[in-house]
Design a protein around this nucleic acid. Structure first.
Lengths: 230, 230
DNA sequence: TGAACATTTACATATTATTTAATTGTATGA
DNA sequence: TCATACAATTAAATAATATGTAAATGTTCA
């Protein structure tokens, strides 16, 4: 990656913007700033950032709407920043198309890691691969088969659908709602218990240590995330 | 993919035609008949046979002339049948464009062999034959034949279509819907019971232990999968 | 008409999904 | 820090579906 990666930071607090800008100083990243939703939408279009860090508490437009509007024309990864106490918003934002979230206060280290993961998806391999790998598992979407150590795993239809959906959003957070609507259809948004049971069963087939999952991670109160980085 | 090999038998003796037809019954070959030269020329044009077995003693046109006329526009292999005592004619026929000859009486085995040689010459080099193997079975898509331990299996049309479709997607899961639409056509998407019955019958012909299938695997709630790799 | 094949029916078995309930883990405010 | 409420994991029971099978009934074609 020779050209600098452009990060759009959207936050109304100048202090936060400054903090983030200095955090990325001296790295391969270039930070541009927006202090409100209007500016964010404009810069998202003109500057073509590689990643957007979006605070939800903006003075003019609701952060969720900003995410929604950007998603209408762009696939740029959006990482949502929420303050503790306003955590309901993040689920809404994820449903609106955001890719990941961080709760303030967060460590720079973790932020960097999340940004890197997002970039690997978009810059690394643009074409959607028909095969997703994680650990010693391999998901062949074309063949509709899942392997663990080159042996075909026996998954039920629901288990497969759940895994395939998470794989589609590899390394990104998928909300309960997204999973429930995709697998069970509309009207099942609140049957979170279904997810818990099936995720447990999935983990027992995929994870080496189901009680300490390495691939299917729980995002408490939000959803799940399939980790593919090795 | 070629359909069954078509053989045009040209002979004025109904007994001979019947004999040849029964000889090829139950094989990959389909026999059509002509009892005189006129009919032979017409069928050679309309039916597009893959091989022509031509008796030289025809009531209306001289067999040699039939061969000559066909050669004016077609390269279809012509095997001439001559009775002992009229063996001079065969030289003439070969000069006229015939490819091979057999002297009556001839054995079915020899006839088959000669036909195969002819077919290899025309069809063989056309394209590498698509063959799918699994266990001790072999599916020859070009010849439309299925072997188990080198013996030809007798499959019904539906059974063959099902197997061929699964072979096309070898080692991948094919859904009930895919199979039903391909074999029965649109509008049969829900007749899963058809599949169950025919798959059971297929397994009884292909599998060593139909109750514990090794090749035609069930993907519960989804479809089936033909395993071709060990 | 008989033979080969396809469809339909009925039912035992196998596989999945859902529900329930007990337990453990985690976030958060006093 | 601790208590508390909520969320998540887990196992086990029950319900719902899917599958394989055999056997009866149609259908087609020579």
């Amino acid at each position: 990656m020779s050209i600098a990666v452009k990060i759009l930071v959207v936050d109304d607090e100048a202090q936060i913007r400054k903090f983030l800008k200095s955090s990325f100083a001296g790295t391969e990243y270039k930070v541009i700033e927006a202090e409100d939703g209007q500016t964010a939408l404009r810069l998202a279009g003109t500057e073509m950032p590689d990643v957007i860090l979006l605070d939800l508490g903006l003075p003019d437009i609701d952060g969720v709407d900003v995410a929604k509007q950007i998603r209408e024309w762009s696939q740029v990864p959006i990482i949502v920043l929420t303050a503790r106490g306003h955590e309901d918003d993040k689920v809404e934002a994820l449903d609106a198309g955001a890719d990941d979230y961080l709760t303030k206060p967060f460590s720079v280290k973790e932020l960097m890691a999340r940004v890197k993961v997002m970039l690997r998806r978009t810059l690394g391999n643009a074409a959607a691969e028909p095969v997703v790998e994680f650990g010693d598992c391999k998901l062949d979407l074309a063949a509709r088969l899942v392997y663990k150590n080159d042996e075909v795993l026996k998954l039920t239809p629901i288990e497969y659908k759940l895994l395939a959906f998470m794989a589609k959003y590899a390394d990104k957070v998928v909300t309960h709602k997204m999973l429930l609507s995709d697998v069970w259809g509309p009207g099942y948004d609140f049957e979170v218990q279904y997810l818990r049971v099936h995720m447990k069963n999935l983990r027992h087939k995929i994870e080496d240590e189901p009680a300490n999952p390495q691939f299917i991670l729980t995002e408490a109160g939000v959803g799940y995330r399939l980790v593919t980085k090795g």
